[in-house]
């Protein structure tokens, strides 16, 4: 695999102005692009800062001292800033902050990025409808975005990030305000996204393990573990920073190991470990 298909961070450190310590310290990792990467860690571990760095918000919008080199495949997040929405879709922790505030309806809110790209009205209408159907917002298209529930607003924020069909998607705790059904629908949708590089932070360890290709574990701004969810939770000195998924706890207590001796972390692996077919 050549370098253009790699996500690489080389000794990356980030410090906010006036902060006593680096928010991210010496992050070094090289991993293939076009996969789903989960970012886990306790509060104030640097998850949001990493998302901001990968999206170019740091240092393009937020001032911070950035050391080291980083690249997302062929993409440089800080180049072509005016058209950043064509390449990167970003969903904030608080969906209300992501809305333009200039739109009276959900439809015009969703169309905002496309209008900025100068697309035609018919193309915008088609894309908006397709996404509204996908995220169960079709009945809310003429509704004021401010009147949506927390979960609906979060779905709208996701739809707004996807509307330009970006190569890279960054979700900063995208299901924090969704109900269990909405959360499970979101992760089921996420699992089916191929040919995109996706970063997702979440406190839902079970959903992340079932969805992502690899996990990055952060603590106090440092990358303390990385790899597949199975590898991370099965390593001998496994981190106590994050709770293990329910599947892993159940399997390890019951002694349901996979043929290679690892305990499962996903539902599919659990089926395999217990010898059941799906």
């Amino acid at each position: 695999m050549d370098d253009s298909q790699q996500i690489s961070l080389n000794k990356v450190s980030v410090a906010y102005p006036g902060a006593e310590r680096n928010q991210l310290s010496d992050l070094t990792i090289k991993t293939p692009a076009h996969q789903i990467i989960g970012i886990l860690g306790p509060s104030n571990s640097g998850k949001t800062t990493l998302c901001r760095l990968l999206s170019g918000i740091i240092p393009q919008v937020m001032r911070a001292d950035v050391q080291g080199e980083y690249r997302l495949g062929t993409l440089n997040p800080t180049a072509n800033w005016a058209e950043i929405n064509r390449f990167i879709g970003y969903v904030f922790q608080n969906p209300a902050d992501q809305l333009s505030g200039m739109a009276e309806t959900v439809a015009t809110e969703m169309a905002f990025s496309l209008v900025n790209l100068g697309q035609s009205a018919s193309a915008i209408d088609a894309k908006v409808r397709a996404l509204a159907r996908q995220f169960q917002l079709i009945d809310q298209l003429n509704q004021n975005p401010a009147t949506l529930s927390g979960g609906q607003m979060q779905r709208l924020a996701i739809a707004c990030a996807l509307v330009t069909d970006p190569e890279v998607l960054i979700f900063d705790d995208p299901t924090s305000q969704m109900d269990p059904v909405g959360t499970s629908q979101f992760f089921a949708w996420l699992k089916n996204q191929h040919d995109k590089t996706i970063f997702v932070t979440s406190t839902n360890v079970d959903a992340l393990c079932n969805t992502v290709d690899s996990l990055w574990v952060l603590n106090a701004g440092q990358l303390v573990a990385s790899g597949t969810p199975r590898k991370i939770f099965n390593q001998p000195a496994k981190s106590e920073l994050i709770p293990a998924p329910v599947v892993f706890n159940l399997a390890s207590q019951m002694g349901w190991a996979l043929p290679d001796g690892d305990y499962p972390v996903t539902q599919a692996e659990l089926m395999e470990a217990t010898g059941h077919e799906r």
């Binding site: 919008v61 800033w81 929405n85 209008v115 790209l117």
Partner: peptide, 17 residues
């Protein structure tokens, strides 16, 4: 936060129509 979101959504794109 809103200003950041707007910039990410191509607010300053000269092609806006």
């Amino acid at each position: 936060e809103r200003s950041t979101a707007l910039q990410l959504r191509g607010f300053s794109n000269p092609n806006r129509q």
